[in-house]
Structure formats: structure tokens, C-alpha cells
């Protein structure tokens, strides 16, 4: 039972790659349930409209233009990340573009708060709006971290000619990241429909 250089058998290499991809898909489930709480809150509070407090004040409606801009930034970011994970030749450039666009989406969200015209206390809608968009922006920051680490690892490995890193593992990391990020962007699309169009 001694572990020696001669007898010690490595675990199958595909385990690490498969587990990351599987975890990414399960993480999508977690994201779905997390944001489902806000969907539930939206329709529950809207249906109840307690004390006619769904909207308090006259202009409790976010700017459609900024909303579209935020959504567009996220959608493009998701598309580029999707392509980056599947086109090794363009993975760095597309990955960087996806990061920049995601950063733009988060930035625009905070810009929207500055020009919103209503506050968190302006009724049930305002509560859901602030709660959902703020947690979504936080999720965006988490996505940014993941995308940055994936792209940075590939960039560094390419520079070293993949001397110290397994390109398969790194690209699998990009793939897992793209699965989560595109799912996250899909949630953002639902968020836009609910908060801006319904």
C-alpha cells in the first residue's frame, strides 16, 4: 500500500475537466434559484399591491434606454465569451472583449442608479428593481473575476508556449466559464423583460 514513484497511479486526467464542467452546469441551477427569489418577489408584491404601494410616487419607471444599453452590453459579452470558448484562435481577443463589455454592463448599472429618479423606498417595484439589479451587478463582478482568470491563464500560458500549463485544462476552464456566463446573461434578459417591459 506504500505510495511510491513506481506504483502511485495518477487519477484519470479527464476527471478534473469533467468535474469543472459539471459544476458549472450545476452552478447555473443555483443562479436560477437565487434569482427566482426576485421573480417571485416581483409577481407576489405586484399581485398583492398592499396599501397601493407597488409604486409610490409618479415616476417609478427606469430609463428604457439605459436598460437596453445594459442588456446589450451583457448580451454581447455573453456571445463573445461563448465564441471565445469555442474558437481557440480568437480566445484571447474575444475573451478580453467579453470582459470589457461585462465591465461596461456593470458600470452602466451603477450609472443608471445615479439618474433613476426614484429611490428604493418608492414601493414594492422599486424594492425589487434595486434588489434584483444590485445583486445582478454583484453577480456580474463575480463573472468578471472568473472570465479574467480564465483569459489571463490562457494569455500567460500562450506567452510561455504552454510550457507549464495544459492547454486542454485551460480551454475547459474557458468552456465552464462560458456556460455560466451565458446562463447568467440569459437571466439578465429575463430580468430586463420583467423589470422594464412587464
Amino acid at each position: 500500500m506504500d505510495a511510491t514513484h513506481e506504483t502511485f497511479q495518477e487519477e484519470p486526467r479527464e476527471w478534473a475537466a469533467r468535474s469543472l464542467t459539471a459544476a458549472a452546469k450545476m452552478w447555473c441551477g443555483s443562479l436560477a434559484f437565487f434569482f427566482a427569489a426576485f421573480v417571485f418577489a416581483y409577481f407576489y408584491l405586484k399581485a398583492l399591491d398592499l396599501n397601493h404601494g407597488w409604486t409610490i410616487g409618479k415616476h417609478v419607471s427606469p430609463s428604457g434606454g439605459l436598460g437596453v444599453a445594459i442588456l446589450a452590453a451583457y448580451l454581447l459579452s455573453g456571445l463573445l465569451m461563448y465564441l471565445a470558448a469555442r474558437r481557440p484562435s480568437d480566445e484571447i481577443s474575444m475573451g478580453v472583449a467579453a470582459i470589457v463589455l461585462a465591465l461596461l454592463g456593470v458600470g452602466l448599472q451603477f450609472l443608471e442608479y445615479a439618474f433613476l429618479g426614484f429611490g428604493p423606498a418608492s414601493g414594492g417595484y422599486a424594492s425589487v428593481f434595486f434588489g434584483w439589479t444590485a445583486t445582478y451587478a454583484l453577480g456580474g463582478l463575480w463573472g468578471l473575476y472568473w472570465m479574467e482568470t480564465s483569459v489571463a491563464a490562457l494569455w500567460r500560458a500562450r506567452r510561455n508556449g504552454f510550457a507549464q500549463a495544459d492547454p486542454g485544462m485551460l480551454r475547459n476552464g474557458m468552456m465552464a466559464c462560458s456556460i455560466c456566463w451565458t446562463f447568467f446573461v440569459a437571466i439578465g434578459t429575463i430580468m430586463f423583460v420583467v423589470l422594464y417591459l412587464v
Partner: peptide, 12 residues
Amino acid sequence: DTGFFLPGVGGS
């Protein structure tokens, strides 16, 4: 200052 759970400001 949100009011998710406050009936006075549209929450429940």
C-alpha cells in the same frame, strides 16, 4: 431603505 417585507411601502 428597500421595503420587500414592509407593507407600508408595498412589501409584504
